[in-house]
Amino acid sequence: MQKEWRYFLLALGFFTRIPVPDFANFQESDLNHSTKYFPLIGIIVGFLSAAFFYAASFVFPHVIAVLISMAATIYLTGAFHEDGLADSADGIGGGWEREQILTIMQDSRLGTYGAVALFLMLIAKFQTLSHLNPILIPLALIAGHALSRLWGVLLMATLTYTKPAGKAKPLATQLSMQHLAVATAFGLLPLISILGLLIVSNHSQLIIIKFILLALLPSFIIWLWWRAKLMKNLGGYTGDTLGAAQQLTELAFYMGVLAWSMHL
């Protein structure tokens, strides 16, 4: 249990700005053992994002509360995943060969492709969440952050790390089935809880089936598309592309929930 607590705190410190203790005898390989907790970190980030939305909605219109929630999330994570999205867009958008793409992605400067991708992502998230029923927004935030990080873990499980070194290199060893099972449980837990609420609320089976399809299918399709793109352009994944996967699948989930809510 002490080791697992250590691995959880490592994941928390790696992906958020939440203070964690300094660890003696830290090994980069320890981060590999923390992989199974990435969706749990998503639950925590989503819960705090939902809390900011809920608190702000008492003072401001819910569209402003959405903006405050997004800003809080970006601050909490240090724009870690947004940076990955921008770097991935610059590299894949501006490069032709694998080495050229990787070189562009390592450049700290923001290019046109990255700027456009980041702008469109933030606008799309804001618009999608703003059009959701305010009651659904906290649930969508928690589930979206957890599920999108699970998709990142599944990328790591099905692809190989494509760089000799990098910020995701310590995470790049093969994931065990036990780690995958734990990550999947945390990634799907908020969705299962939402389904439980729908069942308790006596919603029809059709509504529940539509939710399962519309909540999961868009993010799964985006994950398949992004995985295929990484295989074609890089032959594997990098830390930046994991961040991009999180952003893309999170947005796809919100859009799926919005589509579901419009057909109730």
Rank of each mutant, 00 (worst) to 15 (best):
residue 1 M to N: 11
residue 4 E to F: 05
residue 5 W to F: 13
residue 8 F to W: 14
residue 8 F to M: 07
residue 10 L to M: 04
residue 11 A to I: 09
residue 14 F to R: 12
residue 19 P to S: 09
residue 22 D to M: 12
residue 24 A to T: 15
residue 24 A to M: 06
residue 25 N to Y: 05
residue 26 F to Q: 07
residue 27 Q to R: 15
residue 27 Q to G: 08
residue 31 L to E: 03
residue 32 N to R: 14
residue 33 H to A: 12
residue 35 T to Q: 00
residue 39 P to E: 07
residue 40 L to R: 08
residue 41 I to M: 09
residue 42 G to A: 09
residue 44 I to M: 07
residue 47 F to N: 08
residue 48 L to I: 15
residue 49 S to H: 10
residue 54 Y to A: 07
residue 57 S to N: 14
residue 62 H to N: 10
residue 69 S to P: 11
residue 69 S to M: 06
residue 69 S to A: 13
residue 76 L to I: 04
residue 76 L to P: 07
residue 79 A to L: 13
residue 79 A to D: 09
residue 80 F to D: 11
residue 82 E to R: 04
residue 84 G to D: 13
residue 84 G to C: 13
residue 84 G to N: 15
residue 87 D to I: 06
residue 87 D to W: 09
residue 90 D to W: 03
residue 94 G to E: 08
residue 95 G to A: 03
residue 95 G to S: 05
residue 98 R to V: 04
residue 100 Q to C: 00
residue 102 L to I: 08
residue 104 I to Y: 04
residue 105 M to S: 02
residue 106 Q to T: 07
residue 107 D to I: 01
residue 110 L to T: 05
residue 120 L to D: 04
residue 127 Q to W: 11
residue 128 T to L: 03
residue 129 L to I: 10
residue 142 I to F: 12
residue 151 W to N: 00
residue 153 V to T: 02
residue 157 A to P: 09
residue 157 A to N: 06
residue 158 T to W: 01
residue 160 T to Y: 07
residue 164 P to N: 08
residue 165 A to G: 02
residue 165 A to F: 06
residue 166 G to Q: 04
residue 168 A to M: 12
residue 168 A to L: 14
residue 170 P to G: 06
residue 174 Q to R: 11
residue 174 Q to H: 08
residue 176 S to P: 11
residue 179 H to P: 12
residue 186 F to C: 14
residue 191 L to Y: 15
residue 193 S to V: 15
residue 193 S to W: 14
residue 195 L to Q: 07
residue 196 G to L: 13
residue 197 L to W: 09
residue 200 V to L: 15
residue 201 S to M: 07
residue 203 H to Q: 13
residue 207 I to S: 13
residue 208 I to C: 11
residue 211 F to R: 02
residue 211 F to A: 00
residue 221 I to F: 11
residue 223 W to T: 00
residue 226 W to V: 00
residue 229 K to Q: 07
residue 232 K to D: 09
residue 232 K to W: 04
residue 235 G to V: 00
residue 239 G to K: 06
residue 239 G to D: 04
residue 240 D to E: 09
residue 240 D to P: 05
residue 245 A to W: 04
residue 245 A to G: 12
residue 247 Q to K: 13
residue 250 E to P: 11
residue 250 E to W: 10
residue 251 L to D: 01
residue 253 F to A: 02
residue 254 Y to L: 03
residue 256 G to V: 13
residue 262 M to K: 10
